[in-house]
Design a protein around this nucleic acid. Structure first.
Lengths: 105, 105
DNA sequence: TGGATATATGGTAAAACGACCAAATGAATT
DNA sequence: AATTCATTTGGTCGTTTTACCATATATCCA
């Protein structure tokens, strides 16, 4: 694989990897209808604030979200909202997979 | 978050995580137009056969691909092809992200 | 200015991951 | 039945991830 192709696929994998954690995926889904501040997200996540902050940082580094500080709070939003629309397809995967496993019983 | 919602989001994150590795993403992309056997994929990957096999196993466990043994060979295919169509959106993310970083210079 | 609030950063330990090697399996060929 | 080919599995080890705690930073309010 050539250098550029390789770089592209690595960048794409990085985006998917960033979304590949339950907490981060949940956060991204919460942002699909608009920005939220950290505290709004944190309200529903049972983890240390520092953990939440680091997850958001991973999403940001991958380019999935952008952040903006306003007053005391930092607001995050999806850079490209389609990233979450895709979830319907991901759901199709797990549904098909689950059905197959159920059929085994 | 309730048990079922939690399980769903974990399964979805698992799918994204499975695709969140350059080698595995590349493999999935190779399968977008139909099945391939392990040896066909391996031909272009510079890694041990056992490594390749384990990557395929991760994709399979996540439900992204299914496998079928025919003769001496094992053929893999995407369970739900849309999983790769989504990549255009992932690309939009990295493009937007890259542009922003370039603007900083 | 001092204190409270919101968020980020550094350190650390446990767990998960990824790559390799060696060995096992399973199907086809001799 | 023995050998070969395609793939998987088990073991090991260095690297990365994740979660927590403690501490820092930045903004607002009194």
């Amino acid at each position: 694989m050539k250098g550029k192709q390789k770089a592209i696929i690595e960048a794409k994998a990085n985006v998917l990897k960033a979304l590949g954690h339950p907490t981060r995926l949940w956060m991204a889904e919460q942002l699909q209808h608009g920005e939220k501040c950290v505290c709004e997200l944190a309200e529903f996540i049972d983890a240390d604030f520092s953990t939440i902050s680091k997850h958001l940082s991973v999403l940001k580094q991958a380019g999935v979200v952008t952040d903006e500080k306003r007053g005391k709070q930092v607001y995050y939003k999806l850079r490209v909202p389609c990233i979450i629309k895709y979830m319907s397809c991901v759901e199709a995967v797990i549904k098909a997979h689950a059905e197959e496993q159920t059929d085994l019983l």
